[in-house]
């Protein structure tokens, strides 16, 4: 069963139509990478999946719920959909541990001791247990992003969305973050990853979606798409980035 189902999705900012007609499905435990030139609408597409952008038209069904329906509780849906941002967006006034426990404590009313335990486990997983009491300002970019991943995982989401998670990182930091994401994929997390890391898309992705001009131009399994692109625009894009 597909856990994400997008039908005729449209998104406009004023008069600018960023997403024209997007149709896509993501199966449970699938890792889908979204690539494409900047301005192609791939980040907007991702942000429509948890309604961080108001949707102008079409349907987005997450885990059986149409999130374009205003009657559904979007906050509940978002608890099931973790998101990792290019700019990390950690809360600077909270420690690493508090960043992670805030969601479980305030939203799920988890006991502090249980939330702390969970947070430490997640920090262990991303290799940053010793940073629990640091503040985000004391971390490097790669460390911040790994904490951001742990923060999203603390809500125990069914889906993880990644919006160019390594684009703001120094090159030597990229590997650590990708490693954590690979581990996550291996554990069976459903992931949608907007990325410029073609190596990651090829190695970890079950499927790659190529977007351009507000449309999905082509999608295929990574090896097929990278070695044998069907569309001119895909070819042109890949020749520039590979």
């Amino acid at each position: 069963m597909s856990i994400i189902k997008v039908k005729n999705l449209q998104k406009s900012f004023g008069k600018v139509e960023v997403l024209k007609d997007i149709n896509a499905e993501v199966q449970e435990k699938e890792v889908v990478c979204v690539i494409g030139p900047s301005g192609s609408g791939k980040s907007t597409f991702l942000r429509c999946l948890n309604r961080l952008e108001e949707i102008s038209g079409g349907e987005v069904v997450i885990n059986g719920q149409d999130i374009t329906d205003n009657k559904i509780n979007i906050n509940k849906v978002r608890q099931e959909v973790g998101m990792v941002f290019q700019q990390f967006n950690l809360f600077p006034h909270k420690t690493v541990l508090e960043n992670i426990t805030m969601g479980p404590i305030k939203i799920r009313s988890t006991e502090k001791s249980a939330a702390d335990k969970l947070a430490l486990e997640l920090l262990e997983k991303v290799g940053l247990r010793e940073k629990a009491n640091s503040y985000p300002g004391e971390l490097s970019g790669g460390q911040k992003q790994r904490v951001a991943i742990a923060r999203a995982l603390a809500m125990n989401p069914k889906i993880m969305l990644f919006d160019e998670p390594t684009s703001a990182l120094d090159p030597e930091m990229v590997g650590d973050v990708l490693e954590v994401m690979k581990q996550l994929a291996k554990e069976g997390m459903t992931m949608v990853v907007v990325t410029h890391e073609m190596g990651f898309a090829r190695e970890v992705g079950d499927r790659v979606i190529f977007m351009d001009g507000g449309y999905i131009v082509e999608e295929n399994e990574p090896n097929e798409l990278f070695s044998n692109p069907q569309h001119e625009r895909t070819k042109a894009f890949l020749s520039k980035v590979l």
Partner: peptide
């Protein structure tokens, strides 16, 4: 920064919780 609000909302905080915390 708007990213702070987006991060909080993406975790599942309501608008009011995002403001407060």
């Amino acid at each position: 920064d708007k990213g702070q609000t987006e991060a909080a909302r993406s975790i599942g905080f309501t608008g009011a919780q995002t403001m407060r915390y």
